[in-house]
Amino acid sequence: MKVPPRFVPGRGPFPTMIDNFLILFDAPVFAVQLLIDGLLVGALFALVAYGMALVWGVMNIINIAQGEFVIMGGYVALTVANVGIPIVFGLPLAFIVLFFAGWLVFRIVICRVVDQDLFTSILATFGISILLQQLMNQIFTADVRTLESGLGMWFVLDNMVTISQIKVVTFVVALAFGAAIIMFMKTSRLGQSIRATAQNARAARIMGINTDRVYAFTYALNAAICGAAGALVVMTWLVHPFGGLAYTVRSFMIVVIAGLGNFPAVVAAGIGLGALENYAGFMLGTEFQMAFIFGLLVAILVWRNFRLKKQRMVLK
């Protein structure tokens, strides 16, 4: 099949990629739009990724069911709105409901794989994700659902840039949430025992910390964070039972780039990836959005490996 002519009128037959790149220089206002959208989206991903980093760091479990918890949170917010409770309560209720759901999942499955190798726990959480998907499909059907937040838009720069207020709310809530969790980790007794367990579970046990309880709480807290994120997702974009994977994959990448247990790095990586992803989507086309991010991941890992070698920090 012949490739159709794709060029911007008046600019000659440049390849589209260069054209799209030039638009950003001709009309920087679109670059601003992409940046704002990217930053606001990134904060949400950072929130989900933080939960994943927490579970990964403390329990050495990569939680594949992360995205499903997000979607579940979205459905909780939807249900709350449908029974007539004001939607501002959607987020806290999603947090609470998912906390207990996470606790339940831990007691039934995760507590049996927490000391096993990574492969076992990946398999177990993968199973949980399939189970949750089908469960949501049975309860809520496979329809795509959204929730109107009732918030409006801001128009800036001659109405060329639009800022959705719900995305700003998402951004603020995500950061506030993150800050609250850091405070909790640093100051509370339970937070300290979580950090102790992450550092050395055996030593923590000897010191009298009930690590089993710490694990349960960590996993439940992660589910609750995802639930809160989900309540924001359903008001910003949409949810459907099989939409969780995108969140799992993105949070995985963010954690790999940022490292475990480093919240500022997770936020920076989340927001940075969100913005870069949007620019990549604009210039290369949406089909390369994910490919670009994965390419970046490989580049970062190679570079990091190279740097490690240079510093001779490898144990031989």
Partner: peptide, 26 residues
């Protein structure tokens, strides 16, 4: 007619703002 935007949406699509910004521009 000229096709000036030809994006392929990924199956795990959850945000179209990049494509729509392009629509706004072109």
């Amino acid at each position: 007619m000229k096709v000036i935007i030809d994006d392929k949406l990924p199956p795990e699509l959850n945000d179209m703002s990049a494509t729509l910004t392009k629509v706004k521009a072109l």
